[in-house]
């Protein structure tokens, strides 16, 4: 009380260990709090509305899907599913690349499955269970349960006939785009591209997830091409330093069933801008 009496004579003075601040200070603090409330409302509205928005990709985190089809290792680990026939009686194929848990590709996992189950020369007809990642008609499956994800099935009678992939040579091309890891890009992470995500994409590709070239045409339509070496070999390590940046890539394009594969020389075919 004595202190209050004394300090009232002149400009107020606040000491942190005093239990109560002067009235003038109190109204000032209220003013500051009000100003800060205005600031946080402004900042949050401003930041949220100035973001680009996010992709419509989906990662079915808590939903497991079972697919039946042919397990393939080349040109990339995948399950080839058949969902009917076209008017000529050719099967309609949807190839769903497989990836492992975390930031790993499924090459060795699929190789193990093959080795464990293959009966000489046959294709492996399986039922496989995992979590789907998809966007705009392109899907990927994560083998969340790893080894336990797969069960041998009896091959469908006419599935066997289409074991060999339909390969169409589309010639050579030079394309501008970005090298992405399809797992994140298709929906596990948003954004799954560009500089903020590049470290993660590098980690995923280093872990064996097939690198893909994402291109966008002038109408805004996008396409994904799987990048491989000239002999079809994996080139994950060689492309790491280009991931997540704008690049120009030249190579030979092939359509393999329903996927595009671009075969390149990783040492000479990629240029940064």
């Amino acid at each position: 009380m004595i202190m209050r009496e004394r300090t009232r004579q002149s400009k107020p003075f606040y000491i942190g260990w005093m239990p109560k601040a002067e009235p003038e200070y109190r109204s000032f603090v209220r003013l500051v709090i009000f100003a800060l409330v205005v600031v946080i409302i402004f900042v949050s509205v401003f930041l949220v509305t100035n973001q680009h928005g996010f992709s419509s990709g989906v990662f079915e985190r808590s939903n497991f899907t079972e697919l039946e089809g042919m397990l393939i290792q080349k040109p990339f680990p995948a399950i080839k599913t058949f969902y009917g026939k076209d008017i000529y009686g050719n099967p309609l194929v949807k190839t769903i690349p497989l990836v492992n848990k975390g930031k790993f590709g499924a090459d060795s996992l699929v190789a193990q499955m093959m080795a464990a189950h293959r009966t000489a020369g046959d294709t492996l007809w399986v039922n496989i269970k995992g979590r789907l990642i998809y966007n705009r008609g392109v899907a990927l499956m994560e083998l969340t349960a790893q080894d336990a994800a797969m069960h041998m099935m009896k091959a469908l009678p006419d599935g066997q006939k289409f074991a060999a992939p339909m390969v169409t040579d589309l010639g050579t091309a030079t394309l501008q785009g970005q090298i992405v890891d399809p797992k994140c890009y298709l929906g596990v992470m948003k954004p799954g591209e560009g500089k903020p995500h590049s470290d993660c994409a590098i980690r995923c590709i280093a872990g064996g997830i097939p690198p893909m070239l994402r291109i966008i045409n002038k109408d805004g339509e996008e396409n994904l091409l799987i990048l491989r070496g000239e002999q079809g070999e994996t080139i994950n390590r060689q492309v790491l330093k280009f991931v997540g940046q704008p690049v120009t890539v030249s190579g030979k394009i092939e359509q393999v069933d329903d996927w595009l594969v671009m075969k390149i020389n990783p040492l000479t075919s990629i240029e940064t801008e």
Binding site: K101, G102, K103, F104, H197, D199, C200, R203, A206, G207
Partner: peptide
Amino acid sequence: AQFHSMGNV
């Protein structure tokens, strides 16, 4: 956790 874990290093 998001960008660097669950990888090969």
